[in-house]
Amino acid sequence: MSDVLLAVDDLRTYFATEEGVVRAVDGVSFTINRGERRGVVGESGSGKSVTAMSIMGLIEPPAGQIVTGAIDFDGLNLLELPEDEMRKVRGGRIAMIFQDPMTSLNPVYTIGQQLIETIVLHQNVSKSAAREIAAQSLADVQIPYPASRLDDFPHQFSGGMRQRVMIAMGLSCNPELLIADEPTTALDVTTQAQILDLMLALADDRGTSVLLITHDLGVVAGFCDTVQVMYAGGIVESGSASDIFYDPKHPYSWGLLGSMTRLDAAQMHRLNSVRGAPPSVINLPEGCRFRPRCDFALDVCRERLPLLGPSDVEGHTVACHRAAELDLKLVTSEGAPR
């Protein structure tokens, strides 16, 4: 189970805006294996969604352009694929679930219509067979009375229920890769875990790889095998979930971990959170993009952009000039070694 399903290589996706060129994704490379659950974390604006949309082939020209890079999906170069071939992949072999279930379903069609539409599109089945599959996939996501609820409109469902519908829709065609872009962010805390559990269990059943995008490291820690941390359009650290969680090597990851709210009230007052605001992806700083916010920056950080490279831990890569010398596990917010 370690064969590569998706390989993204030096992906650069830029947007032309009135203010200038937005380098939303700027040199991202990673791979996902079959059956892997990959988490992507980072503050909002770091390019997580754009990465996902690039994989889906949903970057809208002329404003959005994938300027360089390659996306290899099971031997297919997605960036060169003709549009009608790409459509078969999109929704069929790679499915995507979005953040806001309240607005992600078309209000004027019943969810049955929307499910059946996808099924008929990607599977060679009749309408009535598609309806059965649709009912089954609603049952899979534990929606009661699935057959009759097919004829209900989105507004007749609650937010959590709608996200279940989205999951059902995403998984109804048994995709090989499921991209979930902050699927639970808009839901209340109690349903979040339920939905994630359900989604990942269903993915496991189907052997579907998952790319779970979130800005919440806690979610990643609980649900993912591997994690990549994105900052300002690039990956700054990547490794197994436990490595990143217990042994962050990049000051940014370390900061993110610190900003995770732990129930330990004594530590609350000053955790090692990330100070400052994310940089504008239009005017990126010279050298390391995180430097202006980094407590450990040296002159070298100003001069060269650090590349993602191996660390002392197998499979754990990091993009920091000082990765080798810093032992962030020991550092508290009060004193940082310089």
Partner: peptide
């Protein structure tokens, strides 16, 4: 620019 249109596209509809 709506979310559900993004959904529709992501389904692979023509």
């Amino acid at each position: 620019h709506s979310d559900y249109l993004r959904t529709a596209k992501s389904k692979g509809l023509p």
